[in-house]
Structures are given as structure tokens and as C-alpha cells.
Design a protein around this nucleic acid. Structure first.
Lengths: 220, 220
DNA sequence: GTCTATATATTGATAGAC
DNA sequence: GTCTATCAATATATAGAC
């Protein structure tokens, strides 16, 4: 198992002997670091910035996380679990159209509610995934292979229009995460009138139209 | 006019008195810097890395560009011109479907042929567009407003299915740039068999299907 | 124009008092 | 556990010889 994989397992099991105070401080630090890493990337972020955002001194922060890299690894490990959850929930026994609608909706809600996590992930991808490549090639690929198989079966059964299941999944990722990663551009282009909170509802309506018109089997 | 705007105008007019050697050296530096900035972002990139990639010493590089920020600004200024070109070419007098197909194709080709430019832009967006916000709110918004108007007219005339023109443009940006910005993930998920050069042809076929099935007017 | 040497600032991390 | 002080490494930028 790779390093991030170990961290993810450890985080899930929580076997560490820690006081409540310690865990709370760590959470404060991780929350602050998420802000800074998401905006500036790993190298662009400084411990000073994170410490200030967390409301503590730099040495105090380093008492809880000995290295800057440890904070980043921990964040990335948690993120990957959260990030894969919606695709896991795509149910082979469900109705194809409503399963896909539900998946698209969940991914868009994640872009709306967890934009910093999305940007942290995007930063990691832009850098060539130095810390996540093992997860991408292992767990993520296995999961997508599995779900692509489900989609193909649905297509074979005529319950979904035939298309490339891998690129379908890519396009759902791309269109939904765009509203988190490129938020500044989306708001600039929509302007003050349409760039407010309603932009996510508009996006949801549009994506419904985009994907469903191509996927729903045609009655000919 | 903002700073990046001035640079873009200057670059277009090229009024500077420079020798051919000077221009060539500057090009070598810019090409090297594009690599480094695209992967690590502005703060994550170092002059040392850029100088080594450009095959010269750090002081030598600084002889041509006094400040690291100058290199980045110059790259961003050029990029924005290139980036907006395909949308400019969307022709109101043309056939709606073939104009949109052509636009999607061009954007995907840019992701394939200029992935570093795409990543440089993505990095700038993730950081909140500190150097490009004026262009986004000014020139880009004006351009998209204009083209959204064209799309709306086509929809009014029944030559295009009715949908949100702004989010349509966002989804074209998102799906095409995804193949540059998240390339490492795309290749990891597709695996060695399907992740080779052919992935762009597969993507082109898929995107054609995705967008056209929803946009083409239905014969009812 | 290009180099070596170096000034100056920032940053990740540690030492040690309390 | 938290702080002040500081080390060591790195990074931007400059000086000045050639």
C-alpha cells in the first residue's frame, strides 16, 4: 500500500491515542490549510499563512504537524475518500437514468459545498498527481472500470443510449468541478446579475438538459 | 487599461527596438517558463528551474527579464489572446450546428496541442485570477455576452435546441480543457491500452455525441 | 552579454525557556 | 503546549569582473 493509502486507512480506523483537544487543534489546522493549499498549491502555500489562518504561531502549528508535507498528505488522503463516494453509490440495480441524474446532482452539489476540496484536487492533478498517482492508477481506475461496466450493460440492455462510458464519466467530472475550480471565471462572465448563488441552480438545469437529451433512449 | 491588457497590446504591436538575438533568447526563456509555471504555479516555480530548462544561468536569465513576475505576466498576456481566438471565430452567419462542432473541435485540439497553456490558465483560475480578473470581467465577458446573443438568436430561429447559452459555453470549456488539465487522471483511468494518443480521437467522438444529441433540433 | 560572487528576504524547521 | 529566538536552506535579485 502506498503512503496516501496508509493514511486513508489510518484515518478511517482512528487508532491513535489522542486527547479531544489534540484532535480539535488538528482539525483547526487542517481547515486552515485546506484554504491555503487550495488557493496556492503545495509549494505556493507557506506555514506562516496556514498558522495565521489557524490563529496560532508557526512553532505551535509545527507541534501538531511536524512537517508541512504531513498536513498536505493528510488533507489529500481524506479528500480522496470523499471524492470517490458518489461514484461508489452509483447502483447497478437502480434505474439507469435516475442513477445518472443523481450522480450528476451529487457531483454538482460537491462543487458548490466543497469548492476548496475540488481545488486542492485540481492543484494535485495540474502538478501531475505526485502524491495521488497510485490512487488514480489503483483504486480510482478499478472503480471507474467497474462502473463503466455497469453503464455498458445498461447500454446493451437498451436502457441507455450507446456512448463511451469512460468519457461520459470524464465529462461529468469536468462539467461539475468546473463550477468550483473556475468559479472566478464563471462569476466574471455571468456578471453580478446571474453570477450569484442562483448560478448553481442554472447549472443544474443546464447539465440535466445536456446529459439527459443524449442519454435517454429515443422512442423511434 | 490594466497591466496585462497593456502587455497584450505591446506584444501585438511589437514596437520595441530589439535585436533578433534578444527576441530569440526571450522566446527560449518564455518556452522554458511555460513548462515550469504550468506545472508548479507562479509561487511554486523557481527562477533556477526556469534558467536550467532554458539552458542558461540565473543571472543571465535575469538580464532579459528583470523579475520573475515579468515572465509570468508576459506568458499570461500572450495566452489570453490565443485562448479567446476560437470563440471569436464562431460565425453568426454560419450554420449553427457546424459552427458549434467546429468550435468544440478547435478547443479539443488546443487541449491536445497546447496543454501547458491550458494548465497555466487553470493555475491562474484556481488562485482567483489575480492577474487576469480584469480581462475576465472585461474582454472575456463582452465576448461571451456577444456569442451568447448569437446562440440565443439561433435558438429563437429554431436552428438550435433551446438551452442556456452561457452554461453551454462553460460546458464546452470544461469538457475540452479537462483533457489537458486532468491529463494525468485521464491516462491513469484509461490505462495503457486506451490512454495513448488515441484518447483524443475517442474524446472527439464522445463530445460530438454528447453535445450534438442535445443541440440538434428534433424532427417531431 | 555572460559569468562568479554575494546581498537580502523568505521559509521550513528546531532549540530551549516557561 | 506555547512562546521567543534562531538556525539552515532556499530563493529573488544585484554587483561587478571579464
Amino acid at each position: 500500500m502506498n503512503e496516501i493509502g496508509k493514511l486513508r486507512a489510518a484515518d478511517a480506523a482512528r487508532p491513535r491515542a489522542e486527547t479531544r483537544i489534540q484532535r480539535e487543534k488538528q482539525e483547526v489546522i487542517l481547515a486552515a490549510a485546506l484554504d491555503v493549499f487550495a488557493q496556492h498549491g503545495f509549494r505556493g502555500a507557506t506555514i506562516d499563512q496556514i498558522a495565521e489562518a489557524a490563529g496560532m504561531s508557526k512553532p505551535n502549528l509545527l507541534y501538531y504537524f511536524a512537517r508541512k508535507e504531513d498536513i498536505h498528505k493528510q488533507l489529500l488522503a481524506r479528500l480522496l475518500t470523499t471524492w470517490l463516494a458518489p461514484l461508489h453509490e452509483l447502483n447497478a440495480a437502480g434505474d439507469p437514468i435516475s442513477e445518472l441524474r443523481s450522480y450528476i446532482r451529487k457531483k454538482l452539489e460537491m462543487a458548490r459545498d466543497f469548492p476548496r476540496e475540488s481545488r486542492l484536487f485540481a492543484n494535485e492533478m495540474l502538478q501531475g498527481a505526485p502524491h495521488a498517482i497510485d490512487v488514480l492508477e489503483g483504486e480510482l481506475k478499478a472503480l471507474v472500470d467497474d462502473k463503466a461496466g455497469v453503464l455498458l450493460r445498461w447500454m446493451d440492455e437498451g436502457r441507455l443510449n450507446r456512448t463511451d462510458p469512460y468519457h461520459l464519466i470524464f465529462s461529468i467530472w469536468a462539467t461539475t468541478q468546473h463550477y468550483a475550480d473556475f468559479d472566478v471565471q464563471v462569476r466574471a462572465v455571468l456578471g453580478p446579475e446571474r453570477g450569484g448563488e442562483g448560478r448553481f441552480e442554472d447549472a443544474a438545469r443546464y447539465l440535466e438538459h445536456l446529459f439527459m437529451d443524449g442519454l435517454r433512449p429515443k422512442a423511434r
